[in-house]
Design a protein around this nucleic acid. Structure first.
Lengths: 177, 177
DNA sequence: TAATACGTTTAGTTTGAACTAAACATAATG
DNA sequence: CATTATGTTTAGTTCAAACTAAACGTATTA
């Protein structure tokens, strides 16, 4: 029935949008969607057909998805093709994204601000106005650094909750009691 | 001293990158950076000069920044120009972004999944395999919906913490005791 | 009322990410 | 060993977002 196919297409298109919104390609969202709404693992060729993008693009996108933990490769014995399945635990997925993407980005941010602070620290003799400006920068940069460090701790805390995922948040938010 | 100017440039460039990473334009990050590292409010023309993009772009970007709560317009009496200052409370900023961007995006996601579920519900007579597929979709879509709803609650919870911001998280994460 | 100062809008351009098509590398099969 | 099946890499293309330049609207000043 077309109604059901429509629901599938609608969901996939929605996931494409979300993927895009979160800074990934639409293709990644669509591929994940196709896998998430498949009762069986899919091969690369099947994905090419279902999602309607070329093999190269699927290949690239799916490796990215794998690295993030959104998709798992299934090696089926006696089969030459690779098969893929979607991760269905979204809290796990969130962790994967936090780990692979946000973490390194926070590290980078912290590093950049630290560098800026060093530049100021190692500046030579300063005129009175320069000294005042330097002090101002230091204060602002320190605020920024503190913020990033807090975010970093938050992420680290979430990532260390491995075994609790799936229940912790839900309980925290009142979905289960 | 050039060392200090370098620190400023380095920070601004870092903020541009971060802005871009979070799905905003680099220009927005640069403009915010210029304001954040300014001891005085800046006019549009001063920003044009400092950030080195055209008036039109600054105008567009700064309105976006304002809407997100990253920047405030200061109407100075007796001055025809608008002046802008950067918000310096980053937890407030995070809230602004959550409110303006994430919230509506979650709403959209929830809505899309709900639509898909309706499509399945209203599908007519189904063959046995179709019925089985429909059931499978329903289960998966429900899982997805639950996840989005949890995220939505999380965001709502964070947004309702208005008065606590700045201390709550830090305490939560052990930065202060 | 003319001239100026300012912010916004618009038409066109630039740019980078994600795509396609096709060549390629590798392993399995006959 | 030639052929086929498969996934990856690459050179080139497409497309949308963000930019520029310039026109525009509006308020202020002379």
């Amino acid at each position: 029935m077309s109604q059901i196919e429509d629901a599938r297409a609608h969901t996939i298109q929605g996931l494409s949008h979300i993927s895009n919104f979160w800074g990934f390609s639409k293709g990644m969202g669509a591929i994940f969607g196709a896998l998430y709404l498949s009762q069986t693992p899919l091969s690369l060729d099947e994905l090419v057909e279902q999602v309607n993008i070329t093999k190269g693009a699927v290949s690239t996108n799916i490796r990215h998805l794998e690295r993030l933990g959104l998709v798992q490769k299934q090696v089926i014995i006696g089969e030459r093709k690779d098969f893929y399945t979607a991760e269905t635990d979204f809290w796990k997925i969130a962790q994967g994204i936090l780990r692979e993407r946000e973490k390194s980005e926070f590290d980078r941010a912290i590093h950049t601000v630290a560098e800026s602070l060093v530049m100021i620290d190692t500046a030579g003799a300063l005129s009175p106005e320069e000294a005042k400006l330097a002090l101002f920068y230091q204060k602002r940069l320190q605020t920024l650094a503190d913020f990033f460090k807090s975010l970093d701790r938050l992420v680290a805390a979430l990532l260390s909750m491995e075994s609790l995922v799936g229940s912790t948040f839900d309980r925290l938010l009142g979905r289960k009691e």
